[in-house]
């Protein structure tokens, strides 16, 4: 019974942290500080990504511009008089013996487009210089 008579041990009270009042303002402040710290990093990262994208797009622009130029040169080569004359000769065409002129009252067809880069960009459709 001795044991039963023993008094219950004293409750250990321990060290308790002082209560701090955590308000919404403090959380907001912490978030702002964190965001401010992260902002330059994020901004820098975004700029780098955008810069990279821009560089890629510029590269594509250059490549396309060069391809356009290559196509222009190819068109010019294909429509060259020398090539057309050679091709006509290869398929057995010969110059006409005589030219027949017919006077008609209607307006003629629109002149063909000029296959020059700047004129394609800046002239109205169908505009061209009279030969």
């Amino acid at each position: 019974m001795t044991a039963l008579e023993r008094t219950a041990p004293k409750t250990y009270r321990g060290f308790s942290l002082p209560k701090i009042g955590v308000s919404g303002w403090v959380i907001a402040g912490a978030l702002i500080v964190s965001a401010s710290a992260m902002a330059p990093v994020i901004q820098n990262s975004l700029m780098t990504t955008q810069g990279r994208n821009l560089q890629v797009l510029e590269g594509q622009h250059t490549t396309l511009r060069i391809e356009i130029r290559q196509l222009e040169a190819e068109i010019a080569r294909l429509v060259s008089v020398e090539r057309i004359a050679r091709r006509a000769s290869e398929i057995g065409l010969v110059p006409g013996a005589s030219t027949i002129f017919v006077t008609i009252g209607e307006a003629g067809p629109e002149p063909p487009k000029i296959p020059a880069e700047h004129l394609l960009e800046h002239s109205e459709p169908g505009s061209g210089l009279a030969p």
Binding site: I66, R69, A73, A76, I114, P115, A116, L119, G128, L129
Partner: peptide, 16 residues
């Protein structure tokens, strides 16, 4: 710059 004939057909141009 390119060199074109009077009707705009290319005679000389620069390629990259």
């Amino acid at each position: 710059g390119a060199i074109l004939d009077r009707n705009g057909f290319l005679l000389a141009m620069s390629m990259d």
